[in-house]
Design a protein around this nucleic acid. Sequence first.
DNA 1: TCAAAACGTTAACAAAAGATAAGAAAATGG
DNA 2: CCATTTTCTTATCTTTTGTTAACGTTTTGA
Lengths: 200, 200
Amino acid sequence: MDALTSAQLNVFRESLEKYVSFNEAEWILFTQHLSLATYKKKQHFAEAGSICRHFGFVLTGSVRYYHIIDGNDVTGYFSFEREFVSSYKSFLTGEPCNNYIQALEPTQIVLISKPNLDKMLANPMLAYKMERFGRLIAEHYLICYEDRVNSFITQTPEERYLKLLETGREVLQRMPQHYIANFLGITPVSLSRIRKRILV
Amino acid sequence: MDALTSAQLNVFRESLEKYVSFNEAEWILFTQHLSLATYKKKQHFAEAGSICRHFGFVLTGSVRYYHIIDGNDVTGYFSFEREFVSSYKSFLTGEPCNNYIQALEPTQIVLISKPNLDKMLANPMLAYKMERFGRLIAEHYLICYEDRVNSFITQTPEERYLKLLETGREVLQRMPQHYIANFLGITPVSLSRIRKRILV
DNA sequence: TCAAAACGTTAACAAAAGATAAGAAAATGG
DNA sequence: CCATTTTCTTATCTTTTGTTAACGTTTTGA
């Protein structure tokens, strides 16, 4: 866990702008509660059975979220550069995770630990902004999840894949197909068949 | 749109306690921004194509969320007494809904309009608490949706139904089976077969 | 109260998906 | 650079789900 360079801090600050803007005094306070972690490929940010103790922001690299089901690996989500990463339920409730989060390549993540977040939420100098920050991030991901649940309710796997072809460039270009299959809720073999069906 | 009785306000206040506690001054301010709507059976709280302009709390009754897909009705979610109700994405972003929310029985809903919520978020007397309130509610539903997405990724329809049998008493007892089937991401015929399979 | 609508099950057939295994191509990592 | 692993496709067979329609029961609403 290292400190962040000013270049790294600037990238982070710029990405937060769409949620909340910090003034200089706030930013100094805020950044005192951050650290930086570097993950090698395949290293874990979170593991099933353990509590996810950090809320993170992917500076460089990418991660995948996966479950182990009957000994098999099932990928459910990804975070890319300049996106947040956490096993939200575990982080927020303090319960053990039921999934893994793993770096897919060398990955740098800005970390906010739960104790540090709680300190900021309790600090009158930062409390209001942190509540707002938390609200807007939670709302953003709530909307993502709402869309994702609706896709399972209203679309077939083939329709979900076609939609991903339209909108999911980064996922499609950077992830192996069996991860994408899991993400769509089907097996890799089934995705391969859907691809064949579509090309004809 | 009526005013609320003090009995109704007390029910609401008590339900909010698990998110945030208002002092008397705050409560008075807060309640000035509420109204009450009564829905007859089958009346709509939100409609596809229109903006969902309210965040609601179900005082009595229940609602279902549904989509129209190729002329068919697909139920995706429910809210029961003392739960919140809204088409979050539409409410938060101001975009038109893509689903309907309909009363399943005579239903009373406490309403917070978007303009009223924005006023409270801008009012220094309430801002902090409202940000916190919003954060905790968004986090709560984020966790619900996270679980729901994971159920689609990691479980078969049969497993989802078995899980619902363990945990979803209210849904199972009060909803017709074809709504439950949609909620599980399958057709009513398929749920009927799963039920038969399980009983043997 | 009575006709109409909604509900749940079942059957029959078609379509899609899961499981497993095999094989070729590509990527990976000493 | 080469052996190993990963990735993707394909084939076969089984299971599950979707679709449509029929039927009896229950609920609903006028």
